[in-house]
Every structure is written in C-alpha cells, then in structure tokens.
C-alpha cells in the first residue's frame, strides 16, 4: 500500500474544504469547524488515492496560468469546433460516418498530463479514448473516431490538435 504523504493530505484537504465552503455558502463558526473536521478526515483517508506525484504542482504561477488559459480559452474553442462539426454530421443524416479505432502516440510523461489529454479527447464530440497502453515509455492512445480518415501520426495531429502542446506546458 502506498504511504500517505503530508503534502498530499494538505492538498486534498484544501480541495475538500473549498468544495464545502462553496456548497454551504455560509460563514457561521459551526459550519466552518464541522467542514474542517470532515475535510481533514476525508483527506487523511483518501489522499493516497488522489495524489501520486508532486502535490503542489500547480502552485507555480506560470504553470497555473497556462493551465487556466488552456481550460478557459483553448479547450472551449476546440469544443465548439467539434460540437459544430457533430451537429452538421447529425443534421445531415449521419451519411459521412466512418467509425474506426485509431492508435495515436503521445509524448506526455506524467500521469496527470495523460489523464488530462484522455479526458480532453473524450470530451470533444467525435472522439472517445478507449484505452491507454504504454510502449517503450511512450503512451499510446486507442481512440474511437467517428471520421477515421487517416492513421498513425496524421490521425494524432487531427485528433489532438493544439491540446497536447498546451497540456505539455503545464503537465509535461
């Protein structure tokens, strides 16, 4: 079993407590104290499942703002493009559907980065990540793609677009 690190507990506690404050939305002392106790207990039990690498990775302002920029601007842009494509496809009667599962390589090394890319791919309509395999230290994504036109690196360019470059800036 993995050991629970203090930094991991603190980071999980902050996230839990922030959620508690947002959901209760009051500053009565008894609410604050109860929230702190519950968050601390939850953090002690669950921190080792959530945080495997450096806990305060995003405390670096440059990385934090790159991440914020990605999630607020770059990713929604890709999302809207893909949604419009999907709307055209569906309203056009689904005639151009050519489904296929393609294998695309990725340069990302950290677990967080890989998970972020997999979730970004899944959230864009038209592509779903089905499996991640590791070959020679490189992550290989198996992606179900609704317009499978190409293969290998070319398909990777079409699916990942700008997303991978941006994720690499804050999560290797």
């Amino acid at each position: 079993m993995r050991k629970t690190k203090v930094s991991a507990v603190i980071a999980t506690f902050i996230v839990c407590y922030a959620f508690w404050l947002l959901l209760t939305w009051s500053v009565k002392p008894q609410e604050l104290i109860a929230g702190a106790v519950v968050s601390l207990a939850a953090a002690l039990f669950s921190a080792r499942f959530f945080i495997h690498e450096k806990a305060f990775w995003l405390a670096n302002p440059a990385k934090f703002f790159t991440g914020l920029c990605y999630w607020l601007f770059i990713f929604p842009g890709e999302l809207i493009k893909a949604n419009v494509n999907m709307a055209k496809l569906v309203l056009g009667g689904c005639k151009n559907v050519r489904p296929g599962i393609v294998k695309i390589p990725s340069e990302l090394q950290s677990d967080y980065g890989r998970a972020a890319l997999a979730n970004s791919i899944t959230l864009t309509p038209g592509t779903i990540t089905m499996e991640i395999a590791e070959e020679d230290g490189q992550a290989q994504y198996y992606v179900h793609w609704i317009e499978a036109e190409s293969d290998g690196a070319e398909a990777g360019e079409a699916i990942k677009g700008r997303m991978e470059k941006w994720i690499r800036r804050f999560w290797q």
Partner: peptide, 20 residues
C-alpha cells in the same frame, strides 16, 4: 444523434454533445 447513429460507439459520440 443518439437516435440516428448506426452503432453503439457512434451513439456514444453523439451523446457527448449533450454533456459538453
């Protein structure tokens, strides 16, 4: 899209529109 798409995986693709 869920109603029109030809198979299971393509239906899941269309359903992503709803959740994004």
């Amino acid at each position: 899209g869920i109603l029109r798409m030809p198979d299971t995986f393509c239906r899941m693709q269309a359903s992503t529109c709803v959740s994004t």
